[in-house]
């Protein structure tokens, strides 16, 4: 009984099916487009998150209770619900009211999906980046603001000329890490048919009947992008910390 069942597992699914990459010659270009799509999607999303995140972080540090809690609520909601849910609500909810132009970016990125996708990802990302900025600003020694204010600089001038230049240095590694996270997280966009890495893998699997190989390639690509990048960031961070000690 058991043996029959056990052997049946290997009839259509052998270990080698994990490494069946025979689809590559035909679908190589699609895979590359998928990679480019993922990179553009995640980089654009995080960059678009920077400005709202800065605003949220500033609000979060405000003395005004109401302003502070508006920002706090935004951050809490976006960090405490799944990105997939946010994506669905924004795509099917919000963007059913907002017309999106229908054209192709670079010949293969469908704007009518890409734009809602980027909006959802950057709204999500801005909650995380806001916390990164807040921590970066708070990490600047309190005495810096006091010295600047004692010279007669306004709060805004002190922020712009003294605090932020130091905070930016603090947050760059965390921001790069957020980019890496987004490269992986952006895979949820496959549910909207955005032809990034995961959607491409799914499409290939469907049309070639090779069910595992395409996802193996996807995993391999994600790893190849994110792992070395995170190592580089770690290195830069370590060197920056050493520089600070003097």
């Amino acid at each position: 009984m058991f043996w029959e069942w056990w052997q049946s597992l290997f009839v259509d699914m052998t270990a080698s099916s994990f490494f069946n990459f025979s689809f590559l010659p035909k679908y190589g270009e699609a895979v590359i487009q998928g990679v480019v799509y993922t990179l553009i999607l995640s980089v654009v999303s995080v960059l678009m998150a920077v400005l709202p995140a800065f605003l949220l972080a500033t609000m979060r540090l405000s003395k005004n209770n109401i302003i502070r809690s508006i920002s706090g609520a935004y951050i809490a909601v976006f960090r405490s619900t799944p990105l997939l849910v946010q994506l669905m609500l924004i795509y099917y909810g919000v963007f059913s009211w907002i017309p999106v132009p229908n054209f192709l970016i670079l010949g293969f990125i469908d704007a009518s999906r890409f734009i809602p996708g980027v909006v959802a990802l950057s709204l999500n990302s801005s909650a995380y980046v806001a916390e990164i900025f807040r921590a970066g600003i708070l990490a600047v020694d309190h005495g810096q603001m006091e010295a600047a204010r004692s010279l007669g600089l306004s709060q805004g001038q002190a922020m712009k000329l003294v605090i932020l230049p130091q905070a930016i240095k603090n947050v760059l590694p965390a921001l790069a890490n957020e980019m890496i996270t987004m490269i992986k997280e952006s895979s949820v966009c496959m549910v909207l048919g955005m032809s990034e890495i995961m959607f491409t893998a799914q499409t290939i699997a469907g049309s070639t009947m090779i069910s595992i190989g395409p996802y193996m390639i996807a995993a391999f690509i994600y790893f190849l992008i994110t792992y070395p990048t995170s190592k580089v960031i770690e290195n830069v961070e370590r060197r920056m910390r050493r520089g600070d000690k003097n």
């Binding site: 005495g143 810096q144 010295a147 600047a148 004692s150 007669g152």
Partner: peptide, 30 residues
């Protein structure tokens, strides 16, 4: 207040120089 603070110099125990600025920039910034 900022206007009056300009006329009241302050020196702190921990210096609070701006680490991202040169000595000259520290002095000329304000």
């Amino acid at each position: 207040l900022n206007l009056h603070r300009q006329k009241m110099g302050m020196v702190f125990q921990h210096f609070n120089l701006f680490p991202h600025k040169t000595v000259l920039e520290n002095i000329t910034l304000a």
